[in-house]
Amino acid sequence: MMQIRHDWTKEEILAIYNKPFLDLVYEAASIHRANNDYSEVQISSLVSIKTGGCPEDCSYCPQAARYHTDIEVQAMMKVEDVVSLAQKAKDGGASRLCMGAAWREVRDNRDFDKVVDMVKAVNEMDMEVCCTLGMLNAHQAQRLADAGLYAYNHNLDTSEEDYNRIISTRTYNDRLETIENVRKANLTVCSGGIIGLGETVDDRVAMLQVLANMPKHPESVPVNALVPVKGTPLQDQPRVEIWDMVRMIATARIIMPKSAVRLSAGRNEMSVLEQAFCFMAGANSIFAGDKLLTTPNPAFSDDLAMFELLGLRTREAFKNGRPQQTQPLAAAE
């Protein structure tokens, strides 16, 4: 079993990424089998609880208010509607529900109170609950933890060097601070990035290095392929080659042996054979359901048919146990 490291150099990671393709997949598959149940894949379902109207300028995102896309701004969903979607997802084989809101940051208001109620309700269904709500402070993270949140997603997107080309409305450090606040509340971290933004291989490697050298590896590392959306600055980006996706997944698997590596956005464009390569290279988590926030995604029935074909099983919730919660922080002044 490979030793868990937190001191990877860019040169080491680049050498892994650039290995001959079949050698890379073989090494990643071997490490995956030594550290995980390779036939088990977690299914997560992603629900947009508040859609559109975001003040940020993320170049890839159709929910940014400044871009003219087909996304209609929708108010916060009702708790009972989220519970209904969660039940549908659970019936389809999902063991985690991720709730996303198009916010720059969490604000202490009635909408956040409603999110806390959603977390409590879905947690009571014995599903892992994940949220992606933008930046949040330590007290907000603790409040979510107290409500039963299991994971918080906050992607790095790309390298620190490339970051300002993609987003100008928040800094790379803002993202790292949010992840630190999530850790302080003893929540599990879900953090990865997007390829196909026009970044270089060095940018991809630099992003993986930041994740792999965190004091504790993210429990979940999503690898997203850009889905270009008309009306966004990256609308004309070419589709990511499957070879690039497999290289990213394999490299992430080798340097973060025990993390769940999540085959995320862009899967709708992949054949079953292409996805099989991703699973062989170490992907052991997917998003399922008709939509990934606002972009198309394979249906549960298609995924379960693929699982049967490939001999994969769905992973149950809380396989690694529930997080040990810290003592609540003192109330904010």
Rank of each mutant, 00 (worst) to 15 (best):
A101S: 14
A121E: 13
G192W: 04
A64G: 11
S159T: 15
D126A: 09
M245V: 15
L312N: 06
R110T: 13
A86D: 10
R104N: 08
S301A: 14
E333T: 12
S39I: 07
M76L: 15
A250P: 08
A28G: 08
Y172N: 10
N284C: 12
L329K: 03
G93V: 10
D203T: 08
M127Q: 12
M270H: 02
D81V: 08
L187R: 01
D236Y: 13
V182R: 00
A332R: 12
M248F: 07
C98P: 03
A276M: 13
F318A: 11
E199D: 15
A29H: 13
G92Y: 10
L234V: 06
R96E: 07
L211F: 09
I71W: 00
A75E: 13
L329Y: 05
L309C: 09
E128N: 10
E105Y: 06
C278G: 04
V272W: 12
A138Y: 08
M1W: 04
L46K: 06
D162L: 14
L156F: 09
L310I: 08
V246T: 11
Y17L: 03
E308V: 00
N155T: 03
A65W: 00
R143P: 02
V240D: 03
V83P: 07
E269W: 09
D290G: 11
L234Q: 06
E241I: 05
V73F: 04
A288V: 09
Y60A: 03
A206M: 07
I71R: 03
I254E: 00
E128T: 13
L304G: 00
R143Y: 01
R66Y: 01
G53M: 12
T69Q: 12
D70K: 14
E72W: 01
I4F: 05
Y67M: 00
E80C: 09
I254W: 01
M280A: 11
F318V: 14
R33P: 00
V115D: 01
E199Y: 14
P298M: 02
V79H: 07
C98E: 07
G148D: 09
M245W: 05
D126S: 14
D157Y: 01
V115F: 01
D302G: 02
T132R: 03
R5Y: 10
V272L: 04
E80Y: 12
L156A: 08
T178G: 05
P55G: 12
F112L: 11
G134A: 08
T232M: 11
P222T: 11
L156W: 04
Q3D: 13
Q74E: 14
R170P: 03
V221E: 03
H139E: 15
I49C: 11
L156C: 07
L234A: 02
A305N: 13
R33S: 14
A89C: 13
P222N: 12
V189K: 00
A65K: 15
M306C: 10
M256E: 00
R204A: 03
V47W: 09
R267S: 12
N35F: 05
A252W: 05
T169F: 08
A145T: 04
S95W: 04
S191V: 11
L149G: 07
I167D: 01
M127E: 01
L133V: 10
N268S: 13
V83I: 15
C190K: 14
V25F: 01
S264V: 04
